[in-house]
Amino acid sequence: MIDKSEWARLIPHQGLMCLLDRVIGWDEACIHARSASHRRADNPLRGDGVLRAVHLCEYGAQAMTVHGALLARAAGGAAAPGYLVSLRGVELARPRIDDLGGELDVHAERLLGGDGSWQYAFRIEHAGDVIGRGRAAVMLHPSPEQQARA
């Protein structure tokens, strides 16, 4: 398990917008994180007092971000900033998630990764049931070195 204090500074999501609580495990291909932030009244994604299931996509995207940051750190660098450019095949099992007790298990698996983009599959479970899944693509902002080569 990796404490949040070890990886939170590696990602752009800070304060309340950092939705994941801890990383359970990760390797080159995937990451498993947990969160109970869906129950917080101050969750910044809440609207009209409700946290809708569509926000599970953000939980998946943050797991991708943490995974990319951990991979970059392991290689001796830092992850390039990225922009979520597409979601595909999103399936949601319920309309809202703030009424779920306990924690969410957030899984992300890297399908493709290169200097310019990442593609991941994500899956969010609650009490062993899949409540959301999909695929996401991120375009990375080129580093100054990459821009100089272009």
Rank of each mutant, 00 (worst) to 15 (best):
D3V: 07
S5M: 11
E6F: 11
R9S: 14
L10R: 10
P12E: 01
L19G: 00
D21E: 08
V23P: 00
W26T: 02
W26P: 04
A29M: 11
A29Q: 15
C30V: 11
H32I: 13
S35Y: 00
S37D: 07
H38L: 07
R39N: 07
L51Y: 06
V54E: 15
L56R: 02
C57Y: 09
A63Q: 06
A63S: 05
M64E: 10
M64T: 08
V66R: 10
V66Q: 03
L71E: 04
A72M: 04
E91D: 14
A93S: 09
R96V: 10
R96A: 13
R96G: 05
I97R: 05
G101Q: 11
G102H: 07
G102Y: 10
E103L: 04
V106W: 00
H107N: 12
A108P: 00
L111K: 13
G114D: 03
G114I: 02
G114W: 09
S117V: 10
S117G: 12
Y120Q: 07
R123P: 13
I124W: 04
G128W: 03
V130D: 07
G134M: 08
R135G: 06
A137D: 09
V138C: 07
L140E: 06
L140N: 03
H141F: 15
S143M: 02
S143A: 13
E145C: 08
